[in-house]
Simulated assay, not measured.
Amino acid sequence: MAVLVTGGAGYIGSHTVAALLDRDEEIVVLDNLQQGHKEALLGGKLYVGDLRDDEVLDRIFTENTIDAVIHFAANSLVGESMKQPGKYYHNNVYGTLCLLEKMNEYGVKKIVFSSTAATYGEPEQVPIDEYDRTQPTNAYGETKLAMEKMMHWFDTAHGIKFIALRYFNAAGAHENGKIGEDHQPETHLVPIVLEAALGKRPHISVFGDDYDTPDGTCIRDYIHVSDLADAHVLAVDRLRTGADSAVYNLGNGQGFSVKEVIGIARTVTGEAIPAIIEPRRAGDPAVLVASSQRARTELGWEPRRSELEHIIKSAWNWHTSHPDGYGDSM
């Protein structure tokens, strides 16, 4: 029996493939390589194609005995989603519809979904829990929420059980040094800070230093990518036991400010990393931290790499050995 990982050549997907390989799982990967990299795959059987391609999905489900699906494939840039919402609905929502219909056709009844805490929008409380209001403030979060709701109705109608995992910021790189974060364009804070340390950026921009936080900068929840990968594997295990559908937040239990991230990066890299204070960005909440208590209790998930220094050090090790990402691996 195989696990199908859609978007498995991407950042979190490739780390999840690595975690599955550690358990000797049979793995099938579907990725259109729009953001993914063949070099990020340490194993598994790769199909290069799109979720919306009926022929590719038929090949996957007929050529392999799929037991469960882990679904990462999606566009995920918030800013782009506000300019091109149609692209996000077509790729994210329609792509998921194609996948769920094909799963139903072939009798595959388990799916773990890489969702996002952007489904909550502006938080009502901190830390955020799974029962808080979901009111996304961008098209990306709205499409992810629509995908969750679609899974609910496929469960109701067809018995396809799902676990949706909501989280904010993945960071870091695998301890083996072979896989890490390579996005074009890069929008995540940790790799952007490290690009400044490498001299690939003149400075790091800090958007606002007058928030109601201890140091005035925004606080966010950062989780080591391998801890996120472990959670996806545990969710597959839970569905295999016959568990009902569920939604879980993933967080490390504390948030880190922008200044804290930059400060630790300076310590880890030994570089000055110039920072420039710029005006706030519209819609940036002061604090976004998710409670993961339910995931800890029901999935047995325990983040083991939650120290910020460890997260940044692992990312730095990868970026220094891959200064141009997978395009120039050493």
Rank of each mutant, 00 (worst) to 15 (best):
A196P: 12
L198N: 12
V206R: 01
F207H: 01
D209T: 10
I219L: 05
D209M: 06
V206E: 07
T213I: 07
E195F: 08
T213V: 10
Y222P: 13
K200A: 05
D209S: 11
G208P: 02
S205A: 11
A196T: 15
D215F: 14
T217E: 14
Y222M: 12
D215R: 02
G216V: 11
P214V: 12
F207E: 00
A196N: 13
R201H: 13
L198E: 15
F207M: 04
D221F: 08
D221V: 05
L194W: 07
I204W: 12
K200T: 14
G208F: 00
T217R: 07
E195I: 05
H203W: 14
C218V: 11
C218N: 13
I223H: 09
D209C: 03
P214H: 05
D215P: 06
D215S: 10
L198G: 14
H203V: 11
I219K: 09
P214W: 08
D221T: 06
R201W: 06
I219G: 04
R220L: 07
I204S: 04
T213N: 06
I219Y: 03
D215L: 08
K200Q: 15
V206W: 02
I204Y: 14
L198Y: 13
R220F: 03
L194R: 04
Y211T: 10
G199S: 13
D215G: 13
G199I: 10
Y211H: 14
P202N: 10
Y222S: 09
L198M: 15
R201M: 02
D221Q: 06
C218R: 14
T213F: 13
S205Q: 00
G216T: 08
S205G: 01
I204F: 12
F207L: 04
F207N: 09
A197N: 02
R220T: 02
D210Q: 00
D212A: 15
I219N: 03
Y211E: 11
I223V: 15
D210Y: 00
I204D: 02
D210H: 00
G216F: 10
I223W: 04
T217A: 11
P214F: 09
I223M: 09
Y211D: 15
C218H: 10
P202T: 04
S205M: 03
K200I: 13
A197P: 10
D212H: 08
T213P: 12
D210C: 00
D212Q: 12
T217N: 13
V206N: 05
Y222W: 12
L198T: 07
F207T: 01
Y222R: 04
G199H: 06
F207V: 05
P214L: 05
G199T: 05
K200Y: 06
S205T: 01
D210F: 00
Y211P: 08
G199L: 02
D210K: 00
D212K: 07
D212N: 13
D212C: 10
G216R: 05
H203T: 10
Y222C: 09
L198I: 14
D209N: 12
H203G: 09
C218G: 10
A197L: 04
